[in-house]
């Protein structure tokens, strides 16, 4: 990364009474990157983001955003960041256009509120009270509020939660547009496809620790991406099959009774070897699939959400 990082997190610790929500996390996010924080519920994603936003003080380690301390340099930093909270943050008694105009007034070089409302697809709802908007509409308004100040760094905490597919697509386009303008985006998400489509880099966190980090492509590659899966009668001779396929014994596993996976590329030769081996034993071969492991599978493996 040629330019200095927009965000630097070193050995961050955040405790709530006895629980270590963030436990020694280090990240470096480059200027203009779209960076995804992935992890199961309670992994420490929101805690991390809220330390970066200046809402919480770190119990250990250091963080800097645009070279500033989010708490001590808050007044200097706040005009340069945009925040979308996981929920809430909107006056229920105001209308979207009024709310955006209010937020625009906080910043020196704000976007045109009316235009921004159109961009997030709320032009028609501009005069409806916020309390009467749907969940997805509120999410989009919240996003607009995060963007109205033309921030250099945007924090989006689960930005598409509760959105319908159309709103989600709009939001994805917006985030891509931000990236093209050089805005640094930090987003947390549960949705793997979102992370895979939007993020230049992803950090997978679990129990407040970094489990893996890299581009979506590198993550799927490093986690043994090539895989062949199939179903057959339970209790096949795994060691014998591994020999027949020319692979180490550990590469062939029975995940559940009758569901098998082979950690290797599904080349035509290998498929042929598998088929021959099965034919010789009079076994049926079902649900044969070859391909790359998806980011979702990588995520589930790394965070221990499924048994190996």
């Amino acid at each position: 990364m040629p330019s200095p990082p927009a965000i630097e997190v070193v050995d961050l610790v955040k405790r709530y009474s006895d629980v270590r929500a963030v436990d020694g996390l280090s990240l470096s996010i480059g200027a203009g990157e779209v960076f995804g924080l992935l992890g199961p519920n309670g992994a420490g994603k929101t805690s991390t983001v809220e330390v970066l936003e200046g809402y919480r003080t770190a119990d250990g380690g250091t963080v800097s955003v645009l070279g500033l301390d989010p708490v001590d340099d808050g007044p200097a930093l706040r005009p340069r960041i945009g925040v979308m909270l996981q929920e809430g943050g909107l006056y229920p008694g105001l209308r979207p256009l009024e709310l955006l105009r209010l937020f625009a007034a906080y910043y020196d070089d704000a976007e045109d509120p009316r235009h921004l409302l159109e961009v997030v697809g709320l032009a028609d709802a501009g005069r409806t009270l916020v309390r009467r908007l749907s969940g997805g509409q509120r999410q989009r308004l919240s996003l607009a509020c995060a963007l109205v100040g033309r921030p250099e760094v945007v924090f989006l905490d689960e930005p598409t939660a509760g959105m319908d597919p159309h709103a989600r697509a709009t939001t994805w386009n917006l985030v891509r547009g931000l990236a093209e303008r050089g805005t640094t985006v930090v987003l947390t998400t549960h949705a793997m496809d979102e992370a895979e489509h939007l993020c230049d880099r992803i950090a997978i966190v679990d129990h407040g620790r970094l489990v893996a980090e890299g581009t979506p492509a590198a993550l799927t590659r490093d986690a043994g991406a090539d895989v062949v899966t199939f179903s057959a009668a339970p209790g096949l001779d795994l060691a014998g099959l591994a020999v027949a396929l020319g692979l180490p014994a550990a590469a062939v596993r029975e995940i559940h009774a009758g569901d098998y996976s082979v950690d290797a590329a599904g080349t035509p030769e290998r498929i042929a070897d598998l088929a021959v081996w099965m034919r010789d034993r009079g076994e049926r071969l079902d649900a044969l699939r070859t391909g790359r492991r998806s980011l979702e599978e990588v995520f589930l493996r790394l965070t221990g959400a499924v048994e190996q």
């Binding site: 936003e53 809430g88 006056y91």
Partner: peptide, 18 residues
């Protein structure tokens, strides 16, 4: 009290409004 409930006060905390 309701601005606090709805997260409005929290949200304002990350804007330049002091």
């Amino acid at each position: 009290g309701y601005e606090r409930r709805y997260g409005v006060l929290k949200r304002l905390g990350s804007t330049p409004l002091s």
